[in-house]
């Protein structure tokens, strides 16, 4: 696969200049996600008010894919209801499994830039780390 479609500008941009890679104050939710096989790790934090995600951030260390994917995710879910965020997580994970329709990938907006990772088994875990963590964190607590 072509380098461009994979480490594209969206990914390198979010990796170099993350918007949300910092801790937030008094988070309502916090969870750590790790990929033991490659050592990617993130700690995801969210503030939720009346069922709406009002603030988000993450700290961590890992490859560009894992860090950019988490950054894109947080950017997308801020301002959304938790159910909507869970819906996006579901779409994203299905996209990475090559199970999402083109319309669904459109719905993922910027996160759709990671679609090609579905062809890279070795990197799938990196791309879904943030989304999995989000899913576990807010999916569990109702």
């Amino acid at each position: 696969m072509d380098f461009k479609t994979f480490y594209n500008e969206v990914v390198t941009d979010h990796n170099m200049h993350p918007l949300h890679k910092h801790a937030i104050e008094n988070p309502d939710f916090e969870m750590e996600g790790v990929n033991p096989s490659c050592g990617d790790e993130i700690t995801l934090q969210l503030k939720v008010k009346d069922g709406v995600i009002t603030e988000g951030g993450f700290v961590g260390d890992g490859c560009a894919i894992s860090q950019a994917s988490a950054d894109i995710m947080i950017d997308m879910v801020i301002g959304k209801k938790t159910e909507e965020a869970l819906h996006l997580a579901d779409l994203f994970i299905r996209m990475i499994k090559s199970e999402a329709s083109p319309e669904e990938i459109d719905e993922l907006q910027e996160a759709g830039a990671l679609a090609d990772i579905s062809h890279m088994p070795a990197r799938v875990k990196c791309a879904v780390l943030g989304w999995h963590t989000l899913d576990e964190m807010i999916g569990k607590k109702d």
Binding site: F3, C63, A64, Q67, R123
Partner: peptide, 12 residues
């Protein structure tokens, strides 16, 4: 650059 990205880029 994270080592996994390095190895991935070089692998390609």
């Amino acid at each position: 650059v994270h080592p996994h990205d390095v190895a991935d880029i070089m692998g390609r």
